[in-house]
Nucleic acid binder design. Structure first.
Lengths: 236, 236
DNA sequence: CAGGTAGTTTGCGATAGCGCAAAACGGGCC
DNA sequence: GGCCCGTTTTGCGCTATCGCAAACTACCTG
């Protein structure tokens, strides 16, 4: 059985206030698994049999409508939990999770959660904290969708991705996993066409450099300005 | 000191799995207060000194942008908690809460939360559950804003309000607190003008009856159909 | 009961962004 | 090394919805 080194995860928010011995006990209930790029981890609507902690890689959580339209709920970065359906008392996953890069995860059976929470109440408190933070972020996203134009929303989305999963380059920040125009469209409530037009525009101004599922912010500061600019466009 | 009758709140989700004695102890830490219609309970950005449980009335939670635009985060119904900034580790309220009707609330000092959670871990688990549910609802709202037209979103919003706070009438359902076109616009990401046009249209078809801050769904079933109709409008 | 205020209705452009279509592109696979 | 497929780019008309402006109305206040 693959043993997980305690020290690798001890610092994560999920385990704040948990003693090393307790952590050891918690990890004994988990197994680890590897998901190759573009493989599904779980499907929306499936029985929530497990919950997950991402160790390496990147995972996209997306929600699909009955008519097949999708939105990206979020990108999961290493160290974050996902698939916490049980925390909200849901029997089925409300979204689909897919590895966008080769990824390694820890997996607990959902059935272990009540016992773990009883023995280690800090887990519930810590999870409450992260779910609460996600709720706030979600509200911020709604606020943006209600009040900002597409260009500003795309700017915000890229800045968030850069902050969460950006790789510093000599000159600029690269988003460290494959992401298409379509993905960005699904994060911002627009179409891939509009995202493409916006990025083309920015590229010709030298703000970004981008290609197939690849985006580099060359002038992050100028993109911040774009993101904050009010609707009038700042004409002189 | 105003004593709160235990039996009034014992059945609430927040207190699931809490013994009567424990509940008594928890309630001893709270005080109750009355907020008249249209009075602010707390302001976005203010120190989160308390958290709340609504006993009677209705409360609107709204978020404001730096430029003054608002969205309605949610309407709080009796029995629900709000102002849980501390649960997510926030020092300040992320939104403004206002009583839209004369309202009565229980108030705990934020500082009591860690102690309560330690003594009664079920509180954390229960709160996790409700916050998780809200997160899901929030994602659903994002999905709707991304994929549906305004008319459908308004239909969904009214149906949710009717479900949460609807008063059954002989013929139809009335939303049981004052709500303006502007409020609905801020729930659905549109303008009060557009909401007014939509409601006017529905009214002339007999689907709703409405007036100053008052809405009655006369044909809830037909509104469900509108809400679910895909974009083409179902011509033929 | 008159006046004032907040909420609502409606008309009329203006336009951001969509939707469709098609071409160009880039990379990996055989 | 050439072919195939998924991604990206770009053009062009369309329309749902906004934004502004103005009139109207119901309720509350004095």
């Amino acid at each position: 059985m693959a043993k997980v080194d305690t020290s690798l995860v001890a610092h994560l928010p999920l385990f704040a206030g948990v003693t090393p011995e307790a952590l050891d006990e918690i990890l004994r209930e988990a197994r680890s698994a590897r998901y190759p790029k573009n493989s599904a981890i779980f499907e929306q609507g499936a029985d929530a049999q497990s919950f997950f902690l991402l160790l390496h890689g990147h995972v996209r959580a997306a929600k699909t409508t009955p008519t097949g339209e999708q939105i990206v709920v979020r990108y999961v970065a290493p160290g974050e939990t996902f698939g916490l359906a049980m925390a909200i008392g849901a029997a089925r996953y409300p979204a689909t999770a897919m590895a966008v890069d080769d990824s390694v995860v820890l997996i607990w059976p959902t059935s272990a959660w009540p016992r773990l929470v009883e023995r280690f109440p800090a887990l519930a408190a810590n999870t409450l904290q992260t779910v609460g933070t996600r709720l706030q972020e979600s509200h911020t996203r709604i606020l943006e969708m209600s009040t900002q134009q597409v260009e500003q929303r795309v700017a915000h989305a890229l800045l968030r991705l850069a902050k969460q999963s950006g790789k510093k380059l000599d000159h600029g920040i690269e988003i460290d996993f494959p992401i298409s125009r379509q993905d960005i469209a699904q994060m911002t409530g627009t179409t891939l066409h509009t995202v493409s037009r916006i990025l083309s525009g920015w590229e010709s101004q030298g703000l970004v450099e981008s290609g197939r599922q690849r985006i580099i912010l060359r002038e992050p500061h100028k993109i911040v300005v774009l993101a904050e600019r009010s609707a009038d466009g700042g004409a002189t």
